[in-house]
Amino acid sequence: MTRAALLVCPASGRGRAGRVADAVAARLRTAVDSLNSHVADSAEGTLALARRAVDDGVDVLVVLGGDGAAHLAVQACARSGTALAVVPAGTGNDLASALGASSVEDVVAALRAGGRRSVDLGRLETGTWFATVLCAGFDSAVNERANALRWPAGPRRYDLAILAELAVLRPQRLRVDADERVLELDALLVAVGNTSSYGGGIPVCPDADVNDGLFDVTVLAAAPRRALLRMLPALRTGRHVDHPAVRTFRARSVTLSGPSWVGYADGERMHEVPVSATCVPGALSVVSSITSV
């Protein structure tokens, strides 16, 4: 018997989640034995409802929302007996994509097939978990700008934010302590990937694997603005890692220090650098039809 809870974040996707909530609930009920729906009216409410569902012992918590809502649900589901599923209804939907969910139909199929997987999570020194990418520098500035924009919707919002931030881009001195490695350089951004993508499908850490117990780290060293403009199309394909200004490596624990940057994780604002994170193997159970999530 599968007991599930649906957590609806109605503001996600500029109200899209609220509009489709009833239809999503109806489809999910065809794949589980019982389903209770909960509607959150704030970030605090989302987290509280997610924790209540986990405390009640539901087998699956399904989030209808974007990466922000999924990030809050991860805080409740990490190291628990409750599996997380995400029905994408936000701006970026990077965690849903990593789990192979482009719609409620993908989640329904995985539930019917019993598709459960354990995946790694990142954990900040504050105790906050993240499922996708921790970033700082240019990419976190893009996040800040994208979150403030009211138009356009979807991934194009990030594209517009990228162009705007390029105009004011300045490198800063960055130190990365990664296991036994120390890297110091003038840098423009750093991304610590548990999964490959952020910002609505940008594969900043294209080879990241959520089952290897390691982060993939991507660092962009200082480079002329014109070179960065030429690199932008490669960001969408993951080929940016071939650029001589880009350095990549893997590590279990990472500490970022030096610049006056703000760290973002799962697209959510964390705190200013310095920031430390550790990869915790198998910390989250998820519903997914992808065998190599």
Rank of each mutant, 00 (worst) to 15 (best):
L166I: 03
R156Y: 02
R145W: 01
R181L: 13
A187F: 10
A164N: 00
R175W: 05
C135L: 07
L183N: 05
V142A: 12
N147H: 14
P171F: 07
V119M: 05
R145K: 07
R175I: 12
W129A: 11
R145V: 10
A89C: 11
E144Q: 03
D106R: 05
L174K: 01
E125K: 00
A164P: 00
A187G: 15
V108I: 12
A153Q: 03
L95V: 12
V142Q: 02
R116Y: 06
A98M: 08
G114R: 15
R181F: 06
I162G: 00
D159C: 05
S118I: 01
W129D: 12
S118M: 06
S102I: 02
D106F: 09
N143M: 01
V107Y: 00
S140R: 07
R150A: 15
L169V: 15
G115F: 04
A167G: 05
D139E: 13
R156H: 04
R112L: 11
D139G: 11
T126Y: 05
V176L: 01
A146L: 04
D159M: 04
G137N: 14
A109W: 01
L183F: 13
P155S: 07
D186C: 09
D120P: 06
Y158H: 10
V104A: 09
P88A: 12
Y158V: 05
V119K: 06
N147A: 13
G92S: 15
Q172R: 07
T132P: 04
L174E: 08
E144A: 15
L134R: 08
R112Q: 14
E125L: 02
V182S: 15
V107L: 03
D139T: 10
G127F: 01
Q172K: 04
R181D: 13
A178Q: 03
A167M: 09
C135I: 06
R170Q: 12
G115R: 05
V176F: 02
D94L: 06
L134W: 07
P88Q: 13
V142H: 04
R175P: 07
E105Y: 02
C135P: 01
R175S: 14
D106M: 06
V87S: 04
S97G: 10
L166R: 03
R123M: 13
L169G: 12
A141Q: 14
Q172N: 09
G127Y: 02
G127H: 08
G90D: 09
V168H: 12
D186Q: 14
D106S: 05
T126H: 01
T128W: 08
L95N: 06
R156E: 13
L163G: 12
F138G: 05
R116E: 13
W151H: 11
A136L: 04
T126N: 07
W151E: 09
R157D: 09
V168T: 15
L166S: 08
A136G: 11
W129T: 04
L169D: 14
V176Q: 02
L121E: 11
L166A: 08
F130L: 08
